[in-house]
Design a protein around this nucleic acid. Structure first.
Length: 931
RNA sequence: GCCGGUGUGGUGAAAUGGCAGACACAACGGACUUAAAAUCCGUUGGCGUGAAAACGCCGUACGGGUUCGAGUCCCGUCACCGGCACCA
């Protein structure tokens, strides 16, 4: 007995046939401006997928969900007359290939090539309309040559705080260019993962473990390459406003960047050293009863008194041994130690003790805080534990006349972190919190003891990895100084190695390649490699011009595919208070990588301040364009008519603060340096939801609930696979897989097939005799045109599930028709084509009898007249409850409709003789009688 | 704790403030068949009345509100999912 299912229609022969056809005819190739077949009259549409990492496991059903959605849009837009750029490529540097290489000794390039071939085969089986001539691979020297080139752009640029723009390093007039480069070397307490043998970016560490593999991550001081993403913090937040992205992703990015407004306040220690703290509540300054420094804060050693030195040293030592996990997770119990020192509050000249505690983070703000236990939960807990004084300075109700600055003797019973009115605060008394903040900041400014300040949680991007399978840095070291190699030497190939294993010491494996290492008798190559994100930071640009050997992307190609109508990026033009420092303010110029020890923190990391006037201006409104370059009326409008960038980008949420933030950063830097025409890369972003296993659990090998697209395609065909992925539910929602659901969609496609084809005795198929060249009747015509309308609208809004529902309705209406009007069936095939391209091409060929490619046919128009009914069936409510339905002429006016409704016996029954107070008639919708 | 999202039949879901449950899945009944598969037709939110046609009541997490009318808008509560979390 054969276990093979009978195929509901011969998808197994027609799918390869049409895939070969599209390939031979290069149906989905789109030429660039300047090429002979380029049609400049068509508008462009750039539709992008997040390109996959070609793992050995192959595609899972989650990948093609987004890919199918974009494929439908791409095919649709093409049929609507757009030049559609819809490419695919491979994000192929990365750990798994390298770990596999370590296990097997096989070179990562070999396994990567095999995996790419496997992935590509799987994608092609699904029938995606990619322009394969534009395929990119991040490990291709012709590609990573330009990744290295972009690194050199960042290396050779700095961020000018006055212009708020990246500029060539040549415009920098300060003493030490190495201290301001966008790519710089710093000693920092970095995330070191021993298991992976490499350091990781903050974004790659989750709950103290590596995102990849879940291995423990510890802080360790190392000398590393950093990218100065913090310089762009303000613009990265500001730029989100104009983007058509899900609010959740915008919120995630805003949250990650973590902008907060407050003030810097400078206390003076008894020894004379100024101690600057950052606070978001300067209005509580009168309630500051002690200061706290982070254990790593640079002033700790200087401030500590000899009597307390042992205790402080022990505490700092202990804190440094704690992992991040221990410092945060177990941290509800506060610890700390007194330095023995005091500082003076600049507003009331009160002497307050200076403490050290690891609840204060060295990397944020100034690494020092003023503690206001009455109004901060953490300070409250610390003060309780160490019996420090607590003074109430904010009340939830105005208590005027209590003031005078005299400290309240009774300690409050509770911590009140909310806003209210200042009390016990001298000149601030009675002011609401927001006004008190402004007033105290103004007063501090006047005496030079403080100023308004903005800080960010975002840290600079740790950009080097101690791995083999990544882009080598185009940098050499000579006499302890780094310098770029000339762009003409790119691509810089990685050395051939037989041992890819991490050294375990933090020294990268590239250091084993002695010959490669030697650049000149006196210069050695940088041995770190770039992180996997490097290649994906700009791949969308390379798609525009993938084989260009002169430039990372040609100017004409870039401005066509990425261009909009160009407007200056609207960012507040305001200077930073002081130059951004690296993670711990320790970025000193070069030394050998890996040789350095963590120096003492200096300066004031991640802290930017602007003058009060500019801040007020910014708070009111975004800066208007400084000049109008255009004479058109559009220049008066604040929003660009066409923002440009990628028109639609679909992918998962997992890259919210990784790829999507990194790519925006590179894009802005390249934009500033004049290489790009738009300030933002991705105009519209959509996240597809997760596909769960049939058991409703997340798909995973260990649960055994993983669905492989190949087996689905084997049994039901690619078209059924595509349609099911879209029919499951809204694109953005998580939803469980269901094999019976696939079967249902497969039945639908088989019905479409049998609309046109009839099975013979011998099992072969021939054109159904029911098909005839007749006009559809009014009802059928209405369904067909409603379907054309709805499917087109639904594709625009990515509501693919309801588009398919509508086509099912259409098919259900066509099935019983005899004869079946050919024109109606052809329209159906056209609208179904983006969803089920193989089936519809085949039937189109059979039915049209001419050798055309359906994918090339224009999208059909719908006729509004066909949708108009002569009569309407209207529901009639009495007091909002449905009681009857009446049929009225489309042309009947409201009073006629009302009269008809009131004539209904059922309606009369429910009115029950009561006087009718009001009748609401919504034309074409309903009637509501109010009694 | 903070931010974002979600809550509708047995299941996936649909519904510009206007007939809740379209379209499917599953289930049940029927036709075709020697039989099965496939296909086609029908029933299917809950409770109640009725032989039946039909009719009534309830129903979109829960409690309020706005409205002629609320799944949809507003206020509050609960549950679940995702992110951040000693960020001063």
């Amino acid at each position: 007995m054969s276990s093979e299912r009978r195929k509901p229609y011969p998808f197994d022969t027609i799918e390869p046939k049409w895939q070969a056809h599209w390939d031979t005819h290069q149906t989905f190739h789109v030429p660039n401006p300047g090429e002979p077949t380029f049609d400049p009259t068509r508008p462009k549409f750039f539709i992008l997928d997040m390109f996959p990492y070609p793992s050995g496991a192959g595609l899972h059903v989650g990948h093609p969900e987004g890919y199918t959605a974009t494929d439908i849009v791409a095919r649709f837009k093409r049929q609507c007359g757009f030049n559609v750029l819809h490419p695919m490529g491979w994000d192929a540097f990365g750990l798994p290939a390298e770990q596999y290489a370590i296990k097997t000794g096989q070179h990562p390039a070999v396994t990567t090539a095999a995996n790419v071939a496997h992935f590509k085969g799987q994608l092609q089986r699904i029938g995606f309309a990619y322009d394969w001539q534009r395929e990119v691979n991040t490990t291709d020297p012709g590609y990573f040559r330009w990744t290295q080139w972009i690194f050199l752009q960042l290396y050779s640029a700095w961020f000018n705080a006055d212009t708020q723009r990246a500029e060539p390093i040549s415009t920098y007039t300060g003493p030490d260019p190495d201290s301001v480069r966008l790519a710089y070397v710093a000693d920092a307490r970095v995330n070191w993962c021993a298991e992976l043998g490499t350091v990781l970016a903050n974004e790659e560490v989750i709950d103290g473990k590596s995102e990849v593999g879940g291995f423990p991550v510890v802080r360790r001081p190392m000398r590393q390459w950093m990218l100065r993403i913090t310089a762009f913090a303000e613009r990265l937040i500001h730029g989100l406003d104009g983007l058509d992205w899900p609010d959740s992703i915008k919120a995630l990015q805003r949250n990650w960047i973590g902008r907060s407004e407050g003030a810097e306040v400078t206390f003076t220690s008894d020894a004379g050293a100024p101690i600057t703290v950052f606070t978001t509540r300067p209005d509580t300054l009168f309630g500051a009863t002690y200061l706290v420094l982070a254990p790593e804060q640079f002033l700790v050693e200087k401030l500590t008194t000899p009597e307390q030195a042992d205790a402080v040293r022990a505490y700092v030592e202990k804190a440094s041994r704690k992992s991040d996990l221990e410092r945060t997770d177990l941290a509800k119990d506060k610890t700390g130690v007194w330095t023995g020192a005091f500082a003076t509050n600049p507003v009331n000249y009160e002497r307050v003790p200076i403490w050290i505690a690891d609840y204060v983070l060295a990397g944020y703000g100034t690494g020092a805080i003023m503690a206001v236990p009455a109004h901060d939960e953490r300070d409250w807990a610390f003060a309780q534990k160490f019996a420090l004084p607590i003074r109430e300075v904010v009340s939830d109700t105005p208590r005027l006349g209590l003031g005078g600055g005299s400290p309240c003797s009774a300690e409050p019973l509770d911590c009140f972190p909310g806003e209210g009115f200042a009390i016990n605060s001298g000149p601030l008394d009675g002011l609401p919190t927001s006004e008190a903040k402004a007033e105290i900041t103004r007063r501090l400014g006047a005496v030079g003891a403080g100023k308004k300040c903005i800080t960010y949680k975002l840290r600079d991007w740790l950009f080097s990895r101690q791995r083999y399978w990544g882009e080598p840095f185009p940098v050499v070291w000579e006499e302890g100084k780094h310098r770029a190699i000339p762009a003409s030497e790119l691509p810089l190939m990685p050395p051939e190695l037989s041992d890819f294993e991490p050294t375990g010491t933090g020294e990268p494996p590239l250091a084993r390649a002695v010959e490669w290492l030697t650049y000149s008798p006196t210069a050695r190559r940088e041995t770190n490699t770039m992180p996997q994100w490097a290649g994906s930071c700009w791949y969308y640009l390379r798609y525009c011009d993938p084989s260009n050997t002169e430039r990372f992307v040609g100017k004409a190609a870039e401005s066509y595919w990425m261009g909009g109508s160009i407007e200056p990026e609207q960012t507040p033009n305001r200077p930073a208070c002081h130059a951004q420092a690296d993670v711990l303010g320790m970025a000193k110029s070069s030394g050998g990588v890996g040789e350095g020890e963590a120096g003492a923190a200096q300066g004031n990391p991640n802290s930017m301040t602007s003058s009060p006037e500019l801040m007020e201006f910014e708070a009111q409104s975004p800066a208007p364009p400084t000049s109008f370059s255009s004479t058109s009326a559009g220049a008066l409008s604040q929003t660009p008519s066409k923002p440009g960038g990628v028109d639609l980008y679909v992918g998962g949420t997992e890259h919210a603060v990784l790829h999507l933030l990194y790519a925006r950063f590179w894009h802005k830097a390249l934009y500033d340096l004049g290489h790009l025409s738009t300030p933002e890369p991705f105009q519209r972003l959509v996240n597809q939801g997760l596909i769960m296993g049939e058991d409703g659990q997340k798909m995973s090998k260990s649960r055994g609930n993983v669905v492989n697209p190949d087996t689905v395609i084997e049994a039901y065909g690619a078209d059924a696979f595509r349609c099911y992925e879209m029919f499951m539910g809204p694109l953005e929602q998580s939803k469980p897989w269901s094999m019976t659901g696939v079967e249902g969609v497969s039945r639908f496609l088989a019905r479409v097939w049998r609309l046109v084809m009839e099975e013979q005795q011998d099992g072969s198929w021939s054109l159904s005799p029911a098909i005839a060249d007749v006009e559809p009747d009014k009802a059928l015509r209405k369904v067909v045109h409603a379907t054309i309308k709805k499917v087109g609208e639904d594709i625009e809004t990515l509501s693919f599930n309801t588009a398919i529902s509508q086509m099912m309705i259409c098919v259900n209406a066509l099935i019983p028709a005899s004869p079946r009007p050919k024109s109606a069936v052809l329209r159906l095939l056209q609208v179904l084509n983006p969803f089920a391209p193989h089936l519809t091409e085949e039937l189109w060929e059979k039915l049209a009898g001419v050798p055309t490619t359906l994918a090339d046919e224009p999208w059909p128009a719908w006729d509004p007249v066909a949708l108009i009914e002569d009569e309407w069936e209207l529901p009639v409510q009495v007091n909002g409850k449905l009681r009857d339905k009446i049929t009225v002429s489309r042309t009947a006016d409201a009073s006629e409709v009302e009269k008809t409704a009131l004539l209904s016996p059922k309606v009369q029954e429910h009115i029950g003789g009561k006087p009718v107070r009001k009748v609401i008639v919504v034309p074409g919708k309903l009637v509501n009688v109010v009694v």
